[in-house]
Simulated assay, not measured.
Amino acid sequence: MRTIIFSITVLLGFATLVSATELPLPKGPVILKISGDIKHTNIDGAAHFDLPMMEALAGRQTVIETPWYSGTIFFDGPLISAILEAVGAGGDTLRVVALNDYAAEIPRSDVENYPVILATRIDGEVISVRDKGPAFVIYPFDIAPELYNEMIFSRSVWQVGAIEVF
């Protein structure tokens, strides 16, 4: 009997460990793939997210002026730090890759020191690929105006489809 109880305890512990390292599968179209130094995956050793998965993470809303749009724009999306936490990311650098293969490296310290979001909505509407979607790196210019500079603009990738963590 002790052997059976021990075996069940070990199996339950293993099941908990497995479920803690796996993400749920996306149910809709995948809009973001994360690879590299991550612990929690769901498809082929990477983390794939659909829009509801991303919107379930801690996020931020901001109304800011940017060099890419006229006037002030309302952006909404998950904090990149929340995305990294969800995938159990290690590493110090994020390589953010757009659908057209443009890429920029973002120091992890940026997303730990500032509430940088991966915007999925503009003015309440899902961002279309035509309008710089499905996701757009948005720095918090509203609370950190010192970030409004060319270096940060180059890290503000739009049409984001993937993030590599290293």
Rank of each mutant, 00 (worst) to 15 (best):
F14R: 13
F6W: 11
I5H: 07
I4Q: 10
D76F: 08
I152Q: 00
P29Y: 01
A104I: 00
M54W: 13
H48F: 11
L12P: 06
D37G: 05
E125I: 15
I43V: 14
V157E: 12
I5V: 14
A58T: 12
T93A: 01
D131M: 07
I83A: 04
V97W: 00
M54H: 02
R155F: 10
Y114S: 07
L84C: 07
Y114A: 01
P29K: 03
T62E: 13
N42Q: 10
D76M: 01
E164N: 07
M1R: 06
A104P: 09
D76L: 05
G124S: 05
K132S: 09
D37P: 14
V97M: 04
G90I: 03
S19P: 03
E65S: 14
G91Y: 03
V165R: 07
M1P: 07
M54N: 04
R155C: 13
A47K: 04
V137C: 03
A58S: 12
P115N: 06
A56E: 14
V96P: 10
P29C: 00
P67C: 12
G161A: 06
N42C: 01
P26L: 09
E65P: 05
L23C: 08
L32Q: 11
A135R: 08
L12I: 15
F6R: 10
I83L: 11
L57R: 10
Y102C: 01
